[in-house]
Write a protein that binds this DNA or RNA. Sequence first.
RNA 1: GCGCCUAUAGCUCAAUUGGAUAGAGUAGCACACUACGAAUGUGAAGGUUGGGGGUUCGAGUCCCUCUAGGCGCACCA
Length: 572
Amino acid sequence: MVNFKEEIAKLLAEEVEGLSVLEIQGMIEVPTDTKMGDYAFPCFKLAKTLRKAPPLIAKNIAEKLDENNIFEKVVSVNAYVNMFVSKEEFVKDIVEEAVSKNENFGRSELGKGKKVIVEYSSPNIAKPFHIGHIRSTVIGNSIYKIYDALGYETVRINHLGDYGTQFGKMICAYRHWGNKEDVINDPIKTLLGYYTKFHVEVENHPELDDEARKIFTKLEQGEEEEIAIWKWFREESLKEFNRVYDMLGISFDSYAGESFYSDKMPRFVQELKDKNLLKESEGANIVDLEEYGMSPALITKSDGSTLYITRDIAAAVYRKEHYNFYKNIYVVASQQNLHFQQWIKIVELLGYEWAKDCVHIPFGLVSLEDGTMSSRHGRVVFLEDVLNKAVEQTREVIREKNVNTDNIDETAKQVGIGAVVFQELSNSRIKDYVFSWDKVLNFDGETGPYVQYTHARASSILRKAGDDIVAKAASLNNIEYKYICTDSGYDLAKLLYKFPEVIIEAGEKYEPSILTRNIVDIAQSFNRFYHDEHILVDNEEEKVAKVALVMAAKVALKNGLGLLGMAAPEKM
RNA sequence: GCGCCUAUAGCUCAAUUGGAUAGAGUAGCACACUACGAAUGUGAAGGUUGGGGGUUCGAGUCCCUCUAGGCGCACCA
């Protein structure tokens, strides 16, 4: 694939003195209005060194570049050099790239030999998996897929919230009021019930708190009976989480949660002491972070037990020693910004130079119309319910449309769940949003179903075109690219050209929404092309060229949806 | 009180990192199905980019300040 920007930068470097090719490449822009050109070079900054008026500089450069045949034409408009590349060359280049690479279009080897850890989802055992958990789960999954596509080795970690005094409370409650069958039949709801009942009862029976604390201590010390119950709770909860993960097509390489690090913490408390970082304050041990503009970090409680910041430090060191990561990514809500800043700083103060490779990827809060979610008050929307409802809605739409599909159940699943996933990935991570049924169940406009529909439409055209024509297009021999250099064809080609760059950018910024936006643009552009042009025309040369472009678009849509964690059905 | 984040069309969001006339979707309006899928497309309308200063050839973007909202700030995670 030709890097047009780089080629143009090389040509410009010959005309402009004192600037490197790389510097010039950074200055080249894509005009907002496509009528202006494919690439533009603003000349304002050259005015000082060349001691000439910017428009004059632009004019001179334009005249010289115009002679080069990589361009269709080069003109100057005020201080801008506007360049139009040769459309046929451009379209040929991108169609060949997409069609020949097919499922590998967009993938690269950028990260070869480097290992990236992505921690995401990380629900709390025995608590409901609600709509608030979708963000970490879906964003993390997409970031993992993007890094995988960029050639990195990846490790997916589900850092389960499976430890802490809450389990003492849960076991305590189970012993007082619980029974086995209820837990097996409906683990999460039952366990949550125990947890809330405990909080109600403790009001009148404060001794329950002591009992719970003692049980947790036994758990920490490895008492068999307590361990057995805890393990059982954990397994039952995981079964339920896995049902949702299966629906979403998500899996993990490790479920090492908080409990996994429970015995790995004393080492760091000692290290902190040795390095004189630990201070005593109100009976507890803290690390003072005032000079870094942060409030102090609490390392051990006044009763000597540790907190989750110590677990996170232990986990990071373990991961470095065990995986030797290049990057250690945490997809965790923005509420925990301070927490991450604190512990990453402490890891740095401990002298671990790789602290800089630990990155917190925050995302905004999901709330409900009547306020923030709260398990205790029953104000939650279960993720599984959302997914099921979306699938149901899709099934109805399919029935209405009366489209032939081979497997309505499977298609409804792919489209319905895709709609939820896509919506989650269409805005910048950091924005808060209010969950709304109307929104997740709306399939018009910039939505997952829209992109999937466009893909299905492209697939349908290829089926109608016939094997013979498709084979000719796929061979890429003697294609008359002039037929797809029309306005809408060329616009589509330009968006496809951006696709591989967009994947890199989405990875660098840990921002799947950049990719989401690109495939929406591709879908829009494809639909415009589809309406503007009759694709399956009588003239075979023209038909083959157009089919080649349809194939290229289909490949980008399919791969793009894949990177978001979505299926691309052939019919819907 | 301190810190971080957010504010762009009625609503939900973009804007190539400081560039040309700020763009999409959605809602409402007017159109287009006997061509390859209408979960679609076309058109018109919709803006003092929260307010005010500043930096410069140029600011939605950078700096200062004010306003509104969200999140966090010691024994939960």
